[in-house]
Design a protein around this nucleic acid. Structure first.
Lengths: 245, 245
DNA sequence: ACAAAGTTGTGTATTTTTTACACAAAAAAG
DNA sequence: CTTTTTTGTGTAAAAAATACACAACTTTGT
């Protein structure tokens, strides 16, 4: 809250022309890459495409694109997502930037990684365009560029976030059974959880709405279906204070 | 692990010249900005400098710089830190990229925000260069560019991280008392904590080394001094699995 | 020497949360 | 009608979090 006062010596070398300043900055090519996760057959999958670089022939890469002039990073990631999946109402969050100078064989390219979560069955994607397909995360290898690193980072990000935020529901149908929910957590976290304690935990949160419907077409006793109560969650986000490491 | 087999139709339009591809990418100016936090007089502070843009005369900005050709983002942030504080052995972590097209008055500039934590007394910085100084985080306002947003984001990041990782020790002297540690947590989290439970918590973690020294020059009964046992922490990082939101 | 101020160091009882664990009933498939 | 698979449910024990009070120590000022 300092006011300029006459005793302060005026700052020298103040820059008047911001535009000229920025024009002198070095520039780099910038892209976004999306780790788009889906859940199918009790496995976490990620959407990949065959690389179109000869150098990486046969290797998969993530979906990505350059960032356009005057486009926000979030917009660019969203555009990629929409172009490839046709979906627009999808969870998307920035993870981090990757900047190794040799990460792209064509020269310096910085990329910002995004994590996206969607329900595989909600989209009819042009799956066969250019070998676009879902690949199990656990068996991925030999990706183009540093995309394996990016997937690893995004997967770690997801493992952590899913424990603290209700992200997982983005991977499931709107109506789901507790078994499906537990399978999701077990698959993503790579652990097995006690069924009764898992159910008790969600019951105690009181964020699942029992919609009085049952599973259909399952080869065993059907379970109840639930929806996640996003509204209640939004109005009662828990602010937890604790120290634990 | 697919092998090319003769039945697969050969992919068309494979790009041979990656360099040419990248040369055609649009380019943007890229910077890093560091939210460098310190702890002094039981307050969280952040290192700021008077903006050198006339448009922002009198406003503070974070320390930042352009990212050089072939420089990693981490390197660039580290370079900024070292140039301004003379320190090199400092906690630094990427937070996220900011890309609003109008965030810089000189045109489109993307910046990647970093959070750094250091002990204010460990450096003799050229504090008076260009009005470089420590500013209390809680009373910051009217910053240049979107730097207030960046500080807010980094502060939120810090609040969350400090509860799950032993970052706070970077802000304290190597030897510290439990009171100092508690003051730190209270200041950063903005809460008051029960003193006995706080001490019990750290005692149960068994990560503080009692070095059998006492505080000096405090105007009251001196407390014991501790060091944080980074080695033990590294070898026994807790892998917590739980669901809580 | 003494009093005042400020802080240290410590333990227990209560509540809450987490964990471990088993069985009867439902539906589908054959 | 038998087998298979899964659902739905409760309790006891252990662990963690919380609330809370007092005597002793050191410095400072008188």
């Amino acid at each position: 809250m300092k006011k300029n006062n006459p005793q302060e010596k005026p700052q020298e070398h103040l820059i008047k022309d911001a535009r000229k300043l920025v024009e002198a900055y070095p520039k780099v090519p910038l892209t976004v890459d999306c780790a788009i996760f889906g859940f199918e057959e009790s496995q976490l999958k990620v959407l990949v495409i065959k690389s179109d670089l000869e150098l990486y022939e046969g290797h998969y890469s993530l979906l990505g694109d350059i960032v356009k002039d005057n486009e926000e990073l979030d917009e660019a990631a969203y555009r990629v997502l929409k172009e490839r999946t046709g979906m627009d109402d999808v969870f998307l969050d920035q993870v981090r930037a990757f900047s190794h100078p040799a990460r792209h064989p064509g020269g310096r390219v910085i990329t910002v990684a995004y994590c996206s979560l969607l329900n595989i069955n909600h989209h009819q994607l042009k799956i066969h365009d250019n070998d676009l397909n879902w690949h199990s995360v656990s068996t991925l290898k030999d990706m183009a560029f540093d995309h394996k690193d990016i997937v690893d980072e995004c997967y770690g990000w997801l493992q952590k976030r899913i424990q603290e935020h209700p992200l997982g529901f983005n991977l499931l149908p709107e109506k789901f059974s507790l078994r499906e929910l537990q399978n999701l957590y077990e698959a993503i976290l790579g652990v097995s959880l006690d069924r009764r304690n898992f159910r008790k935990k969600f019951a105690s949160m009181d964020l699942l709405i029992d919609i009085n419907e049952m599973e259909q077409d399952v080869p065993h006793r059907p379970g109840k279906l639930y929806k996640f109560n996003f509204e209640k969650y939004e109005t009662s986000k828990r602010k937890w204070i604790g120290i634990d490491f």
